[in-house]
Amino acid sequence: MSLRSPLEGIGVVEGPAGLRLSDLTLAHREGVRGAGAREWLLSQGHALQDAPSQIVASGELGLVMSLSHREFWLLQPDSEASTGRPASEAVAAGVWPFYCQHSHAWLQLAGEPRAEIMAKLCGVDLSEAAFPLGSVAQTQVARVSVIIAAHQSENDHPVFSMFVDQSLARYLWEAIEDAMGEWLE
């Protein structure tokens, strides 16, 4: 069975100053959670910060995003999602797979005014001074729950990756596109 994005057919929104809203929903991601998740990831050679709510580059193409002391997402923006059935057994003792591929859509916002755009929709200060690269916030954007991660894209441009429940993806896309409006004129 092939995966489909809830944003299928919408395309990309682009503007001046590198402004770009794109859909990465079909890019690969997986997660692990449990009391032993952190130690297991370290044993697999992943880089991790000590505190939760951080995102770090790990390996050649990947990122590790920590949402708590026990939950981590592995993001691969350049790899296609696996269509295989997710495993239901523990990865290791105290480490369980977590299916963020199927639950969340992945939107990415790049460009100079990205923090100003998000300020219209989100109560957390996402300016670079308050929310530097490597930061993660689990918060509300346009009143729906969203995970926001600030990191470098594959082109070394700073971006916000945003993860939202698949059923809310179109709503969030339209809210961000509307907030981008004044920069697109």
Binding site: P52, S68, G123, Q138, Q140
Partner: peptide
Amino acid sequence: MKILTCPLNGPRNIAEF
């Protein structure tokens, strides 16, 4: 807006709780 400090996520709007 009231602000409540979450031990994991920091200070957030009360609407998030």
